[in-house]
C-alpha cells in the first residue's frame, strides 16, 4: 500500500498540487520564525564584551553558512535517489534546491566579510571557514551551470546528479585540506563561532534563524519545483487542463 502511495506522490502531476498546498504553510512559518529569530538577535542576546554589537552579524552569517552546507547535502541525496531509482521528481528537487543553496553560500560569504572588516580590519581573510565557503559556492555554480548547459532534461538531471555526488564526496576532503593549509599559514585568531559567555541565547537565536532559513528554503524550493514541473510537462494533458481551469 505504502509503495503505491509513494509512487503516487512521486508523480509530478500529483506533486504539483501537493506542493502548492504546502507552500503557504512553510512560508508563514518561515516569516514567524524570522521575526522571532530577529527579535532574539537584536533584543534578547546581550552585547558581546569583546566584539561589541558587530557580533550580531553571526545571527545571519552562521545560519546561512549552515544552510548552504545542509542544502548541498540534501541536494546530493535527492540527486543520488534520482540517479539510483530513476525518479524524475527527485532530480527536479535537486535542481530546485541549488539556486537557493548558492544564495545562502553567497550570503554567508558577504556577511562573513562584513563581520571581518571591523574584527580583522580587512574585508577578506583567507581563513579556513571563509575559504571553504567560497569553494562550496564554486561547487554550486558548477552544478547549476552544468545543468543549464544541457538541453536534454534526462541527461541534465543525471549529469547534475553525478557532479553533485562527486562534490559531496569531495567537500570533506576540500574542507580538511583547506584547514591544513590554513593552520600551516597561521590561522586567524578570532573565530566567528567561538562562543563567548552567553552561549545559550546565542545558540537559540542561531538555531531559530536556521530553522527560519530552512522553512524559507522549503517554500522556495517547492515553488521552484512547481515551475520546473510545468516547464517539463507542458505537453501533458493535466497541464492543459490546469491552464483551462485557471482561466
Amino acid at each position: 500500500m505504502s509503495k503505491i502511495n509513494l509512487y503516487k506522490f512521486a508523480s509530478p502531476a500529483t506533486f504539483y498540487g501537493l506542493a502548492g498546498q504546502m507552500i503557504p504553510g512553510f512560508a508563514v512559518l518561515s516569516a514567524i520564525l524570522f521575526a522571532i529569530g530577529l527579535y532574539i538577535s537584536f533584543f534578547v542576546a546581550p552585547t558581546d564584551a569583546q566584539q561589541g554589537e558587530a557580533y550580531r552579524i553571526i545571527f545571519i552569517h552562521v545560519p546561512a553558512a549552515w544552510m548552504s552546507m545542509f542544502i548541498y547535502v540534501v541536494m546530493a541525496v535527492y540527486a543520488g535517489v534520482g540517479l539510483a531509482f530513476n525518479t524524475r521528481l527527485s532530480a527536479m528537487m535537486a535542481q530546485a534546491l541549488a539556486p537557493t543553496g548558492a544564495l545562502f553560500a553567497f550570503i554567508a560569504l558577504f556577511t562573513g566579510s562584513f563581520w571581518g572588516k571591523p574584527m580583522w580590519g580587512t574585508w577578506w581573510v583567507w581563513d579556513a571557514r571563509l575559504t571553504s565557503q567560497l569553494i562550496l559556492f564554486f561547487l554550486y555554480i558548477g552544478f547549476i551551470s552544468l545543468q543549464s548547459a544541457i538541453d536534454d532534461p534526462r541527461r541534465s538531471d543525471r549529469a547534475g546528479a553525478l557532479i553533485a555526488l562527486v562534490g559531496v564526496i569531495n567537500v570533506p576532503i576540500i574542507y580538511f585540506s583547506v584547514k591544513w593549509w590554513n593552520t600551516l599559514h597561521q590561522g586567524a585568531s578570532i573565530s566567528l563561532t567561538k562562543a563567548p559567555s552567553m552561549a545559550h541565547t546565542m545558540l537559540a537565536g542561531m538555531l531559530i534563524m536556521a530553522v527560519a532559513c530552512w522553512t524559507y528554503t522549503i517554500a522556495v524550493a517547492l515553488f521552484r519545483v512547481r515551475l520546473i514541473i510545468l516547464e517539463r510537462e507542458r505537453h501533458a494533458t493535466w497541464v492543459s487542463e490546469l491552464l483551462e481551469d485557471a482561466k
Partner: peptide
C-alpha cells in the same frame, strides 16, 4: 573549468 577546478584544490 568550472566543474573541475574546485575539485583540484586539495
Amino acid at each position: 573549468s568550472l566543474l573541475v577546478l574546485p575539485l583540484y584544490i586539495p
